[in-house]
Nucleic acid binder design. Structure first.
Length: 347
DNA sequence: AAAACGTGGTC
DNA sequence: TGACCAAGTTT
């Protein structure tokens, strides 16, 4: 079985490359803007191309350069990021913009090590920016590349322990010529042809070099260690409506889950919802709304009952009073939006 | 080093 | 419909 050829893959890429908002088409003379490459790569961390599209365009429209983004309020960035998830990315994005616009004079580092030192840029993103924006022969390894390598070389060891091996196999194929296009080509191959389920091996430019295909085990690779089960957590949220119509929300702490985002005040989330009103933001006549709000996080499933009450115009409470019409002006993550929708529909 | 960290789409 | 997964990083 021959070694998979970068040239063969690049030929395939020249014909099949996806047209993406942040991508310079293959063979194009224009150089990619490192700011756009960085912005897209951070947004694409654990997030699909389809989801990222509109966010990328609105960020670029609003903050065309890294200096513009650095000058923005963190609140505005979190608001614009709302719905994308993994909100630490938005805080690190802002930190990184400030670092680049400040200490680096508005110029992104052009080496993996230099990039790796910036907030929110890990091994994958540093390699991707070095390759795509600066055409350096960095080895770019994301989930697609891991899958492609596991199949090409029929790696039976399971993830995540196989990561170092897969990285080394990927490094052995990385070319000196057109490394940026090559990196995107392997990822496109994984997204279009070498898909997790039902890979289209007959369309693959590397089919003659793929051990997994010759063994007819492509779809079963890469193997993965069983993932931990997601426990169920429960709680109650307090939908507090003031006599002028404003509702009570609050900002979550900067660190941790949904850090810095706006939430509806709630009890702790535990194995069971608390039975008393001890954690209510105000003393009031609480009434339970029908149904509940369910939301899945990466590491637990959440179920929330909604309690509602009306309070006087001069009621004192920790938080932010917001008119329902103005909710769009704030950084509401999807969980908060679900609760708001549920409360508005049932109160 | 293992766990924390969101969300939406797919089959 | 529930499990799986997506251009990972941080602590």
């Amino acid at each position: 079985m021959g070694k998979p050829s970068a040239t063969v893959l690049l030929d395939w890429y020249d014909r099949h490359a996806r047209r993406l908002p942040w991508r310079v088409p293959p063979g194009h003379r224009r150089k990619p803007d490192p700011y756009r490459i960085w912005l897209s790569e951070v947004m694409l961390q654990q997030t699909t191309v389809v989801t990222v599209g509109p966010y990328f365009k609105s960020f670029l429209d609003r903050w065309p350069t890294v200096a513009d983004l650095a000058a923005a309020d963190l609140d505005a960035v979190l608001h614009a990021w709302a719905g994308l998830g993994y909100y630490a990315r938005a805080r690190n994005l802002h930190k990184c913009a400030i670092a680049v616009a400040g200490a680096h004079g508005g110029i992104f580092p052009d080496t993996e090590d230099g990039l790796r030192a910036l907030p929110g840029i890990g091994p994958y993103t540093a390699a991707a920016i070095a390759a795509i924006a600066f055409d350096r022969p960095a080895t770019v390894v994301d989930g697609n590349v891991e899958r492609v390598m596991a199949r090409l070389f029929a790696v039976e060891e399971s993830l995540p322990s196989a990561k170092p091996n897969l990285h080394q196999l990927a490094a052995g194929l990385t070319p000196q010529s057109r490394p940026g296009d090559y990196a995107q080509a392997v990822m496109d191959l994984g997204a279009i042809v070498c898909t997790p389920r039902a890979p289209k091996c007959l369309m693959c430019p590397w089919q003659g070099d793929c051990r997994a295909q010759s063994l007819d085990i492509a779809e079963s690779l890469p193997r993965r260690a069983p993932k931990a089960e997601r426990p169920l957590r429960q709680g109650v949220v307090f939908w507090t409506v003031r006599s002028d119509g404003a509702v009570l929300l609050r900002r979550r702490p900067e660190r941790g889950l949904l850090g810095g985002m706006i939430e509806v005040p709630s009890s702790d989330w535990g194995a069971r919802a608390p039975a008393d009103m001890a954690q209510a933001p105000v003393t009031a006549q609480w009434r339970e709304l029908p149904g509940q709000v369910s939301h899945g996080f990466t590491h637990f499933q959440l179920e929330l009952k909604v309690l509602a009450a009306r309070v006087r115009k001069n009621a004192k409470a920790e938080g932010i009073w917001i008119m329902p019409d103005a909710l769009g002006d704030h950084a509401l993550p999807t969980l908060t939006k679900k609760i708001v929708r549920h409360a508005l529909a049932h109160v």
